[in-house]
Computed example of a mutant assay.
Amino acid sequence: MTGLAGGRITQLVRHPIKSAGYELVAEALLTEGAAFPFDRVWAVAHAAARLTEPVTWAPKLQFLRGWGAAELMAISCQSDPDNGQVTLSHPKRPMTTFRPDDPADAARLVDWLRPLWPENRPEPARVVRVPGQALTDQDQPLVSINSVASLDDLSARLGQPLSPHRFRGNIWVKGWAPWAELDLIGQEISVGTARLRVEEPIGRCRATGANPKTGEQDVDTMGALEAHYGHTDFGVFARVISSGRIAVDDEVR
């Protein structure tokens, strides 16, 4: 397909706690019918959340999220999936390590996040995990794929470089023409030794306007997308249809 030849992975990113940190990884094992590994394993529900008992997947409005607090976008993390451990850092908070499945650590995590969440919103209340279900914005197990060239094109339109971490993607690909990834809807692609089916564009929200270094809203990404491209999509969602290992610099075919 025009503009899609020569694609290679340039970054792989996971977000163990929904809206609370991003982490670069060198490789990942994608599993058929599953989301990106160790991505959105936990989420932090606010005091007004309407959740079932036992908790199942719930829409993003029930959780702390970057749309509601730009400060959250400046959290970065390091994790140890084998130990269920996540270390969070932020310009305004001390670096701290948590095991979110431990009740005492979950309480400490909620307290750590509290100063980064607006006082006029329902306060952070509890850590949630749904075994076997990633707490992504979609109830389906999808992986997000984003293009470096599209990011560069949007950056040029805005007159400033944009960090990829504004978009909380899993797989970043270099070598495609700008916005060519949107032509992949309905197509199957090979990534490393895995195979995926591209299903839909990713509709974005104002959280992408927050700077992941400062936690401040500093650019109108939504306005720029609408003004220059006639939509507010960035990147695509794909479903893993054949398991396989992927790594930075792998070809995307």
Rank of each mutant, 00 (worst) to 15 (best):
D233E: 06
A106Q: 13
S155V: 10
A156K: 15
T221W: 00
A5R: 08
N170E: 00
V252M: 03
R121F: 14
L158G: 14
I145H: 00
P115W: 05
G192M: 02
L142G: 04
M222P: 00
V130P: 15
K92M: 08
P91R: 07
M222E: 14
W42R: 04
G7K: 04
I9Q: 01
P124H: 10
R93M: 15
A74P: 15
G132F: 04
P100I: 11
V148E: 13
A107R: 14
V252A: 04
G132W: 03
A106V: 04
Q187D: 03
R93Q: 13
P141I: 03
L64H: 05
P59Q: 07
R204M: 10
Q217C: 00
G235N: 02
D101F: 05
A48M: 14
L51G: 01
I185W: 02
Y229I: 06
V55L: 01
P161Y: 00
D39C: 11
R99C: 11
R239E: 12
G186I: 06
G132K: 05
Q187N: 07
Y229A: 13
D101T: 06
R126E: 06
L158M: 14
E123N: 11
W67T: 15
V55H: 05
S76L: 15
A35R: 03
G6P: 06
T193Q: 13
R40S: 03
D183S: 10
A180K: 02
E23S: 09
A69F: 06
I17M: 03
N83F: 12
R204F: 07
S19Q: 07
L4D: 05
P16A: 08
L51C: 03
A194E: 02
F36G: 03
E199H: 10
L12Q: 09
K174L: 04
A43D: 07
V127L: 00
A28M: 06
W42H: 02
T214S: 15
G230A: 09
P16E: 03
R166Q: 04
D183V: 05
I189N: 01
A247Q: 15
V128E: 09
A47W: 12
N146Q: 15
